[in-house]
């Protein structure tokens, strides 16, 4: 079977993000970029399916600027076979990204598509579900376990009340949650090999997809920070504070 995985280039999760003074957005100049951590889990899952002999080909797809090629190379270095970059000049909204991905999927005809459950920058948690809807696929969001069966995939989802297991008809969309697997690191020889793996680039503008923005960002501001409080000398003092000062207990 063929598996498509999506990867998004985002600011490294360990970097402290600063809001621009003019309120127009966050300052990403000279910020270290990385593959979105949930996408990394998605890629790992696809590679594990390949290791088990269940997936024949793993195609990594990214929608973003030219430099998103770095993240596609990261996916190729851990075992994806080839990459497709849908090059877009500006940040696109989830609906536009989903339509572009759907276009790619119509060409690729995968059996399974795995994405991260959300990107840690825009925090929308929409693209997987939107692609599923556009393609008319079943969806297994927030997955912590998946098992391929004949023509179906069984997926365990992390839901608010605990764990829920569904059976999805293939082709299906899976979005990866934290505990689906632990992503591997790429070895140096594999990083070198990945440089020779093919990446096809297509321009978003050429895909006859409506990517007009629907949402205007009026302002981006920093949150009001909490101030560090007091270190108390005893639990007794804490209980006293919570009881008489805060009136909480």
């Amino acid at each position: 079977m063929k598996v498509v995985v999506m990867v998004k280039r985002v600011a490294d999760p360990n970097v402290n993000i600063r809001v621009k003074e003019d309120g127009s957005g966050v300052d990403l100049e000279n910020v270290k970029m990385a593959i979105n951590p949930f996408c990394e889990i998605a890629v790992e899952e696809a590679i594990q399916l390949k290791d088990k002999g269940q997936a024949k080909e793993v195609v990594a797809v990214s929608v973003g600027g030219k430099d998103s090629e770095d993240q596609l190379r990261t996916a190729l270095a851990v075992g994806a076979d080839r990459g497709i970059l849908v090059e877009a000049e500006r940040d696109l909204e989830p609906l536009a990204v989903s339509k572009l991905i759907a276009k790619v999927l119509e060409e690729e005809n995968p059996d399974l598509v795995i994405l991260g459950k959300q990107a840690i920058d825009s925090e929308n948690s929409q693209v997987g579900q939107m692609v599923a809807a556009l393609m008319g696929f079943s969806q297994g969001t927030f997955a912590s376990e998946l098992t391929l069966k004949d023509g179906e995939v069984e997926v365990t989802r992390e839901v608010d009340s605990g764990l829920q297991t569904l059976s999805l008809k293939l082709p299906a969309i899976i979005t990866a949650d934290l505990r689906l697997n632990e992503p591997r690191y790429a070895s140096l020889p594999n990083i070198m090999k990945a440089k020779r793996k093919p990446i096809t680039t297509v321009s978003a503008e050429d895909m006859s997809v409506d990517i007009t923005p629907r949402i205007q960002t009026l302002q981006v501001e920093a949150p009001t920070d909490r101030k560090a409080g007091k270190i108390l000398s005893s639990v007794k003092e804490l209980v006293e504070k919570l009881r008489t000062h805060e009136e909480l207990i």
Binding site: A11, N16, I17, V19, V26, I120, D121, S122, E123, I215, Q216, T217, L218, Q219, V220, E221, A222, P223
Partner: peptide, 11 residues
């Protein structure tokens, strides 16, 4: 956005 390190006003 960004784990609460920025707040966006959107229309």
């Amino acid at each position: 956005i960004y784990a609460g390190n920025a707040i966006a006003t959107v229309k």
